[in-house]
Design a binder for these strands. Sequence first.
DNA 1: TTGAAAGCGCTAACAG
DNA 2: CTGTTAGCGCTTTCAA
Lengths: 334, 334
Amino acid sequence: MTASLNDIAARAGVSVKTVSGALHGGSARMSEETRQRIKEIAEELGYVTNFAARSMRQGWMPLVGLVADDLITSPFATEIIRGLDGAVRASDMAVFAMTLSGHRNVGSILDEMRRFRPRAIAYAAMYHKSVDLPAEFADTVGVMINCRDANDRVTSLVPDEIGAAIEITSYLIEAGRRNIAFINLPGILAGELREFGFRQALDHAGIDGAGATVLPAVGKPVYSDRAPSLVPVHVHDLMKSRRPPDAILCGNDRVAMEVYAALRRSGATIPDDVAVASFDNQVEIASRLDPPLTTMALPHRAMGRQAAQILLAEDRPPVGVQKLPFQLVERESV
Amino acid sequence: MTASLNDIAARAGVSVKTVSGALHGGSARMSEETRQRIKEIAEELGYVTNFAARSMRQGWMPLVGLVADDLITSPFATEIIRGLDGAVRASDMAVFAMTLSGHRNVGSILDEMRRFRPRAIAYAAMYHKSVDLPAEFADTVGVMINCRDANDRVTSLVPDEIGAAIEITSYLIEAGRRNIAFINLPGILAGELREFGFRQALDHAGIDGAGATVLPAVGKPVYSDRAPSLVPVHVHDLMKSRRPPDAILCGNDRVAMEVYAALRRSGATIPDDVAVASFDNQVEIASRLDPPLTTMALPHRAMGRQAAQILLAEDRPPVGVQKLPFQLVERESV
DNA sequence: TTGAAAGCGCTAACAG
DNA sequence: CTGTTAGCGCTTTCAA
């Protein structure tokens, strides 16, 4: 079916070793003429390296495994994969992604991944959370992306939620807003941390508790897009209250989308009456809202890139949690 | 590092052949006791099959390659991959995706993929288009997803654009709309086909040309989300015209998003004054618009599933273009 | 029922 | 500078 080094060697009348050297330019030096001839024959026969065979000697396939929560099926995945892929390609490797979706547990999918003998494995979560990786897999996973190991046995890369919340809240305050409502994502780590940062920024600015309303975007304490949204009723109530907010901070861009609609219904204009800001910078949403949304962009791409650095580095860095900064994207909603 | 069959055999005091038979339960039968003991040792040693080694005999890795346009980085990818992955897993294989993004040409990435010796390769495009696959790769690619081979040498799976346009247009007509504007995606195959279906449905209903306005969503005849949008001005002009439309059909859900905003600015309500309908059913957008958007859902998942069937079938079906139906998702915008 | 041995395609070590 | 050979881990054929 597919041509092998042997086929080329036979055709060229040299040994496989010579062909291997010619194509993959090992230290073996040979007449440039022979090398050229071999390359031509390889081309002619449609030869492509057999990584499986090569890996028998090397011990691993030129792959970086990415085991994901349910990530691949989420729009956020794209940026993490882009970042990882770009960096990994530089080392002539490819990213091989598998999704946990139907699986019972993390261990079984990690074992599935290991069968392909990747050089290293990263674990990524769809949203920032704490993951309890079974002890026996602490060595298998080289880095955790967008989540942290509950037992701190694996180097983790997570977005700096607190910093981002402080930055965006301060930004709203600097824009003159004094009564900020935060429609947060309840029951998830990212939400807790952001609320912490939010309150800290308000404290720092000397704004009292009355100006620090925090409301849940959904009823259930679970992150699920299926859960019925509380956004319309919250916004309605806020705007009808004795002291309506002059800014609404949203848990993510989709919440912001709903906030936009609800504000319009209540007759408020953005940003004149109420400024709106958010977290995510989700492709195709944030920039297309009317007015375009000011939001803190998640460092997905950077986490992917950084993960590659860690995985492919000669020596593992000391285990720890690295917080990567969000980026403020200023648009017209503030 | 990793345990091999040899290690297990040594520990169990049997031959590798016996271990292989015990773990992968080939035709080889043996005492249930031995098999059990071997399995325990394997577990204890943390053995996982080495697919690379196995593939040396089989000739291929248990992989289905997915070479994509730029697909992986698009939210649409998710459903195609889900469909493909689900079906492929049933045959104990995994999907291995690679993106064309930085590459010069299709050929080079197909060769890169071939180095991993996948069982079969699918080619997928981000949006429905015609792809001119170099002749020498016609055999390499088993099926084309969301695009068709310009030379009809490869089986292709594409959405039934014409059918979808007819269905949604008829739906609008049945809802009593008589003056439908279509803000289409210019310069791409999907757009052309939909316009054809749109006009056909109007003709069939006996609605004359005056009720069939087709306008481009963007200026450049290229599908790009970077291109400046013409939607706001088109909607403005339409609503100011002597005979404003009672329905607007949109090229995709993001166009619909902009149409919503523009209609609100002009004071029109949805669906009372103007019904809005679209194509895509993009996750997180269509259902969250206010009011939720009636749209024709792209058959991405079905194309992925179907692709797996074709790739893994014993015998290849006769080459041809299979059109998969969209699904009408009725919400409140009509 | 189990063992021994060959061989898949490649690279690395060793000879020539 | 080039050829020969061994061996990676596995499955498969042939023997026992």
